[in-house]
Design a protein around this nucleic acid. Structure first.
Lengths: 209, 209, 209, 209
DNA sequence: AATGAATGAGAATTCATTCAT
DNA sequence: TATGAATGAATTCTCATTCAT
């Protein structure tokens, strides 16, 4: 057969690869399995990706892009900080539930030793800056407590979101969540986490300032 | 007869194994590498551990035991909740700095899919119950806000601690932390995190209640 | 794509495998050795056979098929029982001389403990039924003595054939044969064995009945 | 401990080894298992036997000695050839039933490629000569047919006995026997085999000559 | 350009044999 | 002298990567 891979086929490969990596991790994931599920030959994968690791990285980039998009969309047009927080939290959960493999990939990548800096840079920069700026602005308007360091506050908040991702996307953390509260509803968790964050940031309604 | 491995040699194997598993995860970790670094033959590892998985689990048990001890010791004799939090936070950081491989191994284990429930149970149960009870009691005494769900509050708090572990024990998260604040001092981070938690839990000094 | 193994190459693998299994038995036979002698890589053997045991079984099937064919051809068109016996005896010897590895493999398999029943079923059923029916019919026609149990008679006869296989295919039994008669010619042996069987079965010419 | 191995301990080792080799064959048999079952250390086995193969050979010698003894005893004092045959046949069956491991070892040894001549010499010489002489004498007295070659006749007879050993001592041949006659009794088999041999040798009662 | 069979390095595991005690 | 723990070579099997077609 001599037809070039369509964009859609490339997307398919990436999605199947994310699933395979999510299921089995970088090591145990099998290129041949990804090829089979994608309906292409092994060779074609090596045409587009130098080796397994590079495919893994592309999956990562792909995953992060999707995740970022979802998260950004979540807060767009949201007026209040707390409203944005809740939207982010809900987006986290929804995304993790629907795209567990992406979360598992995300978790896997954070275990990388080599190239950690590079990866972190690519993946976390935007979020870090966005959240920090968000808090800075809120602080300037008196919406959050004055003694909060915006950068660290942003990191702590993002830490909570990351763990939320894992809790809804990785088997281990799901089990762990059950140990804390076997029957918690998603709504109750969101409510509690919003309260938690609200207190942590010392959020006051704007009108209250 | 040939001298049995001394306790110290056995400890060495476990330490090298933790390092190897931390570096490479269960899959990629190589028994032969662990043997080589431990200065013993491959065979002796199979004398002491049935297979790679069992060695992994022993490493896990070992790591958790050490971590638990440190964390428990940190809060013992601490009167106030906030004091305990700060101690825990400082213990987290100290431990992660000193025992990065243990943290990496912990991070690796949370990526396991098979046996996730089993592992979570073993590793997280005690912490989950301890923190939950701590918050319950504090709440009963009016030390934390009344609308906090102790179980979820405990989980969020532990989530922050876990991310702290990673931030000081795993390269990726270290780099990520630098993105938020390249020059933050440990003391400042602790101060900010204590404030963050204080607000999140709605902590009032006991005398204030 | 890389050229698939030709049929001839696949046959080579099977032949080399039969030799290796014949030489060393299932346990000691080394896949790597079979690969080396076949001029293929180890991997290709695992492409065609799930594991060593499956290769072993295929060798078995192959050997039995060849042997059966030879034996069946030997008796086809033979009118008298004694004529058939002589043909079988000669076929045994010829086959064993030409295909010693198959005989050695057969000998090896009879040492298997696990799956003995399964193997025996596959290998011996046809022969058992054929010989038994042959004797039954001959008995009905008064060609063999009336007090012979056809099934047991068939087994004793086949026992003699099996030992003949071994005597011409396995070093040990060859040496053993020399102990009985260092200089025996094949023709003399056949003549004697035919006489032996003739007496054992109480064969009378049909015209004598 | 500094006590020398008693004769009884040496016998124990040999017996346990025969069992282990009978069970698992030369390859899979484990020296450590033999040591454990014999209640001695691994080292002591290597004190008495250079290596596994030598132990195997000693087991063989031991097995053959026992077998020979039993067979010789069986025929001693027996007057008629046919009586001796029946005694031998019964002894075969009884021994194989009681000492299957010895038979399995015997079967294993006949698979040896290297040293086949040596082994055969040691193991089969006496039997070969005994049976041949037996037939020669019987022939001289007109007890067996005149056109029988005593050496070949002896071999065919011994072939039948060997297969009998296997049929009662090795799983594969047991199963094979069931294919021929699933419900045969030992007595019936003996009766049929005696008849078979009687015919084969052309035995006449002495008084009939 | 795509295919997918072949390659072969690499990893887990076993166990005969050694030898320090 | 007996012990049995340690050794490490050897074997099976997998799968990322190559490359002839």
């Amino acid at each position: 057969m001599l037809k070039k891979l369509t964009q859609s086929q490339q997307d398919t490969i990436l999605e199947r690869a994310v699933e395979e990596f999510g299921r089995n991790g970088l090591e145990r994931a099998a290129i041949s399995e990804i090829a089979r599920r994608s309906g292409v030959s092994v060779g074609v994968i090596y045409k587009y990706y130098k080796n397994k690791e590079e495919l893994f990285e592309q999956c990562l980039t792909h995953s992060i892009a999707i995740l970022s998009e979802v998260m950004e969309e979540a807060v767009s047009g949201e007026e209040t900080l707390l409203g944005a927080c809740e939207k982010l939290i809900r987006a986290c959960i929804a995304f993790s539930k629907d795209h567990a493999p992406y979360i598992q990939m995300y978790h896997a990548i954070t275990h990388t030793d080599t190239r950690a800096g590079e990866y972190a840079q690519v993946i976390e920069s935007v979020t870090a800056q966005t959240y920090t700026k968000l808090l800075s602005m809120a602080q300037a308007e008196g919406e959050v407590r004055a003694d909060l360091d915006p950068a660290l506050g942003a990191m702590f908040f993002d830490n909570l979101l990351m763990m939320l991702h894992f809790s809804y996307g990785c088997a281990y953390y799901e089990e762990r969540m059950k140990l804390y509260d076997p029957a918690v509803t998603e709504d109750e968790l969101v409510r509690q986490l919003v309260l938690f964050v609200k207190g942590a940031l010392g959020v006051r309604g704007k009108e209250a300032s």
